[in-house]
Design a protein around this nucleic acid. Structure first.
Length: 405
RNA sequence: GCUGGAAUCGUGUAGUGGCAAUCACAGGAGACUGUAAAUCUCCCGCCUUUCGGCUUCGUAGGUUCGAGUCCUACUUCCAGCA
């Protein structure tokens, strides 16, 4: 059994976009596809059946969180994450590289992707991770205990978890780091760590032949610098990865170019996964420039916080205007929430702090993004991608993209 | 009827002689991109775009340089006793 096969079907004229099929030991993924994130082996507020009903083809879990709790050995003893969480479709696991940044930079808030200088300053006392060229020292956010991650440990964790597609351990820099730091990060950490991740991954796939073979994606970094992005993509593209993660610090207004820089250098016949992106305008730009799959926590998180996607942009269902709107929140949506409940009821659930609010909002948002990417895939197949993109974005308002650059 | 206690923002409270309005809830709005997130931020007496201005501690008096705070009466509520 091969760990992964990728077949390209249709191509986007005049750009790098394409449709395809990724085949894993747990089933296939039609690409482009949106992959919801279930960090701790669950998409918050949803059962696997509810997640599947959104049209999600796969789920992405996180090595750092599952290592801390319940532990990757435990998940291995449980028969792997598919058995453990009762998800029998394809799965991804992130390496923990994101936590190197989010815990290490010391931001309690998500770093502004446009690098706005007014982002809350780092407080050293909040810092929970310290990086060196061999790995990263972490302070657990759960109990303060110290841990040390290396590329090898990340791969061991990810093999214990047993997701179909794993990611190399990388350093996710931010736009606040200067050019010299980005170079140092690539040359001394992300590149050597990719080599070490791949070696350990191959060793583990052989050692653990009783388990389905896992695939490994190298992760391209380089922030917003074209030369670094191309250099990193060439370096990793020359290695024996099953696919590639497109990661790192991205300037929203330049995201399409950034993805193009990478995808022009990467081998065409391997899938490319865009890490942490789900805003519709970004998805269009990334797919157009060669990205195949996406994962992101945003639909789930903003949904739990009361923001629901519509064709006009995100809308806060907690707004008082929905108090007596006794009709579907989104008549265009075919999700369980929109076809069975009124906007007034969703509003009530949120104002009351009811748990069902989280479930229904998550179902709606995941369905919205999954369906959007499905529609984009169809538009590439039938040659209407550019029309669809123009049409969709003409009415879609993105708060972050409206910010002055 | 008697005795005691209480009355402060929509609600519950803090403030016990020195620029009233603390905290929470409720309410209003915003944010969220490889999940330290069912979280966070802002507003929340009135007027003002801002700066700022004005009002207000149940009611009416009194003491005091100064009263939400002390005193008197009244009103209402609560508790106990009749």
């Amino acid at each position: 059994m091969k760990s992964l096969e990728f077949t390209i079907h249709a191509r986007l004229e005049g750009a790098l976009g394409r449709t395809g099929t990724i085949v894993t030991p747990h089933g296939s993924i039609e690409t482009p596809a949106f992959i919801p994130v279930g960090t701790k082996a669950t998409l918050k507020a949803l059962t696997p059946e509810q997640l599947q009903a959104t049209g999600a083809q796969a789920v992405l879990v996180n090595a750092y969180h599952l290592y801390l709790r319940p532990g990757h050995e435990l998940i291995d003893r449980a028969g792997g994450v598919h058995e453990f969480m009762n998800w029998d479709g394809p799965s991804f696991s992130d390496s923990g590289g994101f936590q190197v940044m989010s815990l290490g930079v010391g931001f309690k808030k998500v770093v502004d992707m446009d690098g706005a200088p007014d982002v809350q300053a780092t407080k050293k006392k909040d810092k929970l991770a310290w990086i060196d060229d061999n790995g990263v020292r972490f302070k657990s956010h759960l109990d303060g205990s110290m841990h040390y991650f290396t590329p090898e440990l990340s791969m061991q964790i990810q093999h214990g978890i047993g997701a179909d597609i794993t990611f190399a351990f990388d350093e996710l820099t931010t736009l606040f780091h200067d050019y010299n730091y980005q170079v140092e990060s690539l040359e001394q950490r992300t590149h050597p760590w990719a080599v070490r991740s791949l070696a350990e991954h191959k060793r583990l796939n052989e050692e653990r032949s009783h388990r389905p073979p896992q695939a490994l994606f190298g992760v391209v970094q380089g922030a917003d610098y074209e030369d670094l992005r191309r250099q990193c993509a060439r370096f990793l593209g020359g290695m024996d990865f099953d696919g590639y993660g497109l990661g790192g610090a991205l300037r929203k207004s330049n995201i399409g170019n950034n993805v193009r820089w990478m995808c022009e250098e990467l081998p065409e016949d391997k899938p490319r996964h865009m890490l942490g992106i789900s805003e519709p305008d970004d998805i269009f730009d990334c797919i157009e420039n060669g990205a195949d799959t996406f994962d992101c926590v945003s639909p789930a998180r903003v949904g739990r916080n009361g923001a629901l996607y519509t064709k006009n942009g995100r809308v806060n269902i907690t707004r008082s205007e929905f108090k007596e709107k006794f009709e579907s929140f989104d008549a265009d949506c075919d999700c369980y929430a929109c076809t069975n409940f009124t906007a007034a009821y969703l509003h009530h659930l949120f104002k009351s702090g009811e748990l069902l609010a989280n479930t229904l909002a998550t179902i709606h948002n995941e369905r919205f993004i999954v369906r959007l990417v499905d529609d984009i895939r169809a538009s590439i197949a039938n040659g209407t991608f550019y029309d669809y993109k123009k049409s969709f974005l003409s009415t879609y308002y993105t708060p972050t993209s409206a910010k002055p650059q």
